[in-house]
């Protein structure tokens, strides 16, 4: 009995330690965001002496930051919606129809997810600035460009995740609805979507986060109008005097969605990150 208590004690102690290791870096960023430039360069300590909100108010009232924020929200939300819709259709097709080369399509999908984005930057830049051109309009520096491009890494993951969900819906339900006279749209709306709703929600949430977190494509395929918040963060670090307080404040703001998602969708993160290969 005593030994078990000891063991529980050690476990809890160890986890407290791990939690501190996880939180201290984030806490330090919070501390930096609450300090003025002068205070920063004094002796480092982890306590917050006074509420100094100027970094936050500077960032939040800055029109550039507001534009970046709007772009990020628009791009992530549209991308998540698009991914949910396309992935549902694609999974339904892969699950219900006998298509030639189904398994090869699957393998090809995962290779899309695994490809190093850096290797695609140059061709994408050429395509965005030169190939997709209508008069003066190009895909470069548009929200539409990013929304479509983010499908490349979000769609494969969404399809892999949803495949299990749609496969789990008995095909007899489809048939029954069809006998009752429902078309394809009716089957999707009244049978598949209601039953796949939880899986669909998880897909949407995680796609949203992945799009929100993306940096490399956004940094190279936008210049002014469609820049997202992650590129904004990187822009803070300049050769001539970085404003660390505002950088920290802005980072703290980008953390908010992550925090919400960890709490809301905690159980599904693993499934999402392993394409449903590992379930809890």
């Amino acid at each position: 009995m005593r030994q078990r208590a000891m063991r529980t004690g050690t476990t809890v102690g160890f986890w407290v330690f791990m939690t501190l290791l996880t939180l201290i870096p984030i806490w330090w960023m919070f501390v930096v965001s609450m300090r003025s430039r002068v205070e920063l360069f004094s002796r480092p300590n982890l306590a917050i002496s006074r509420l100094y909100m100027e970094n936050y108010s500077n960032v939040l009232t800055d029109s550039t930051f507001q534009r970046y924020m709007t772009n990020s929200v628009v791009v992530s939300s549209c991308n998540a919606a698009l991914v949910m819709a396309l992935a549902l259709l694609a999974t339904y097709a892969l699950s219900r129809y006998k298509l030639v080369g189904r398994d090869n399509i699957f393998f090809w999908l995962i290779t899309n997810r695994m490809a190093p984005p850096a290797a695609f930057l140059l061709p994408l830049f050429i395509m965005f600035t030169r190939s997709f051109r209508i008069g003066d309009w190009t895909l470069f520096d548009t929200q539409l460009g990013l929304i479509l491009l983010y499908c490349v890494f979000n769609l494969p993951f969404a399809i892999w995740l949803l495949k299990g969900v749609v496969d789990g819906i008995p095909i007899e339900l489809d048939d029954a609805a069809m006998i009752d006279g429902a078309g394809l749209g009716g089957v999707l709306r009244h049978v598949v979507i209601p039953l796949a709703a939880p899986g669909l929600a998880v897909t949407g949430i995680l796609s949203w986060v992945f799009a929100w977190n993306e940096y490399l494509f956004a940094a190279n395929l936008t210049s002014v109008e469609a820049r997202t918040i992650t590129t904004g963060l990187a822009e803070f670090v300049t050769v001539t005097g970085t404003n660390w307080g505002e950088l920290a404040a802005m980072s703290m703001i980008t953390l908010i969605p992550s925090a919400i998602i960890v709490i809301v969708a905690q159980r599904y993160i693993v499934m999402g990150l392993t394409f449903g290969a590992v379930k809890e």
Binding site: T19, T22, W28, P44, L247, S251, S258, I269
Partner: peptide, 28 residues
């Protein structure tokens, strides 16, 4: 403990970089 432990997973890589840069920056 588990929820807090999961937290870093969902943070944007660029923000992770910012967090660590603030920790290791010379000067403060």
């Amino acid at each position: 403990f588990r929820i807090i432990h999961t937290f870093p997973l969902m943070i944007a890589p660029i923000a992770v970089g910012a967090i660590w840069r603030l920790l290791v920056i010379p000067g403060f």
